[in-house]
Design a binder for these strands. Sequence first.
DNA 1: GTCTATAAAGTGATAGAC
DNA 2: GTCTATCACTTTATAGAC
Lengths: 186, 186
Amino acid sequence: MRRLRAVTTRVEQRRRTETRILTAARQLFGEQGFDRTTIRAIATRAGSDPGLVMRYFGSKEKLFAQAAAIPADGPIEGSPEQIAEQLVAALTEKLADEPAAALAALRAMFTHPEAAEEVRAAMTAQQRQVAAQLSGDDALVRSGVIGALTLGLVISRHLVRLDGLDASPEELMAVAGPLLEKLATG
Amino acid sequence: MRRLRAVTTRVEQRRRTETRILTAARQLFGEQGFDRTTIRAIATRAGSDPGLVMRYFGSKEKLFAQAAAIPADGPIEGSPEQIAEQLVAALTEKLADEPAAALAALRAMFTHPEAAEEVRAAMTAQQRQVAAQLSGDDALVRSGVIGALTLGLVISRHLVRLDGLDASPEELMAVAGPLLEKLATG
DNA sequence: GTCTATAAAGTGATAGAC
DNA sequence: GTCTATCACTTTATAGAC
């Protein structure tokens, strides 16, 4: 009985430490990118130590891969009007929240090849879905511009903190929404 | 006479070496960002050596500041229609060329605070000009979205090489141009 | 004037003490 | 199981040889 309790506690304890490390890693990778984030700094912020970080995650690369895994967007389909609606909903969410894992990948992608691949894969997947349902021979270009606009807005708001983009998601979407509709419906 | 010739040659030689170093630095900073670009690599690409690079430019920071200085855009003014026209012209140029200095600053801005300031200053300057000439109480937001769209397109094309953005500048602007007009004219 | 050799600092990773 | 001490390496920057 006592023994069983002690085991679960130990497992639970380890799980929590791993989570703390992962959270700290996401924050730091998101703030400073891959190269400037040190194992030492992650350990300190997680209230742990460098050796443990290495033991749990194997290497800085593997830790980054777990911390910066981008959650896949839901499927996008339907008429151009429905597509536009879904794009608006997805973008609104990205502007309102600060998806830590995605931000880490986004900041790192400009200097870290694997992060670039991660982001490109996520964007390409969505883009293909959109392009397939749009009509017109410029469907690919239009879906590309949709991706660029989305990327530009998310980066400008969360990473660059550009002037004028600190408005509420509603105010931003009141301006950006019609653009997405125009792009989707041609 | 001989002496004079020798002097100019030496000065000229130094100027050329400096230019070669600066060009190599721009390329490498643009390809890999600030941290992953080493003085050694710059010297090698420039056909020179690390000691000389340091001697000429003082430090890696100072070299970067010179290599990644963003040329200011021309003034933007007039009616909303004229603004839109100028924005389209400026963006067309940014998509057609690969402005090495600006790309270096753009790639580095996500990990290097001073590069971030450089880009932010350039973008804010243009944005203020645009916002001042637009009407409506959402002028600031609209000028912000103009900036985000511009940033997104340039980054997606030159840095991320996103699917669908490898089209000709004309094809891209056929899609993106109307968006800028919509944003400028309300 | 140009380049070689080295110093000083900081990194990821590892081995082994508790 | 957790953490301390250290290794091996790479970087910028400098000092001095040619």
